[in-house]
């Protein structure tokens, strides 16, 4: 039986855009550590993230709209993370996968950034060390719900969140301390000087 397709349909543009966006999230796997292997496991045959329309992992930020930060991010890596986040086109979302990405986890040390949400905006947090693949899939489903519920065609929902949302950097850092790393605006490809 031929499918009867009407000549035109009426719909609001926002839900239409949300429907499209939610069902074809292209993740950018920013996999740094153990959680990255669980991310691989999520993509492998047993858990198969393809069932939820999010299997198109692209390693180029220009093609992605969902960044999955899987694993701890350390001082040397954070400028890279910020740069990649800035390179992703709007609309974009970020999932912080695992205890380390969300809060530093067990690594409360000099080198590890205590939660990526201090420096980039994060939409979903997945607890666990590492989270099971099922948890990651659940977070993607939740993100889809969130997009469907709050997304707009113009991306106006992002504009309202001008304020920094995560915890603020420590205020008690001594002034004379020479600190390290960098600024994503200035970080260059080859050298620092």
């Amino acid at each position: 039986m031929a499918l009867a397709i009407p000549d035109f349909m009426l719909a609001k543009l926002d839900p239409l855009a949300n429907w499209v966006r939610a069902n074809s999230l292209w993740p950018m796997p920013f996999a740094t550590a153990c959680c990255g292997i669980e991310l691989m496991a999520t993509g492998a045959s047993k858990h198969d993230i393809a069932r939820f329309g999010a299997e198109v992992m692209r390693f180029s930020p220009r093609q992605c709209d969902l960044m999955i930060v899987a694993g701890r991010v350390v001082m040397k890596m954070l400028p890279v993370l910020q740069r990649i986040w800035m390179q992703m086109p709007e609309p974009k979302w970020c999932i912080s996968m695992g205890a380390c990405a969300s809060s530093g986890g067990v690594f409360d040390t000099y080198a590890v950034v205590q939660g990526v949400d201090r420096f980039i905006p994060v939409d979903m947090y997945v607890p666990g060390c590492p989270p099971r693949p099922e948890q990651l899939i659940q977070s993607i489903l939740d993100l889809q719900d969130k997009i469907r519920a709050s997304g707009t065609l113009q991306g106006t929902e992002f504009e309202q969140r001008i304020e920094h949302q995560g915890p603020l950097p420590n205020a008690d850092v001594p002034a004379d301390v020479v600190t390290a790393p960098g600024d994503y605006k200035k970080s260059r490809r080859v050298s620092l000087n």
């Binding site: 910020q82 000099y110 080198a111 205590q114 201090r118 950097p169 850092v173 001594p174 301390v177 390290a180």
Partner: peptide, 8 residues
């Protein structure tokens, strides 16, 4: 000494 918080 606070280096880990020193990012934009």
């Amino acid at each position: 000494r606070g280096e880990r918080h020193n990012f934009p």
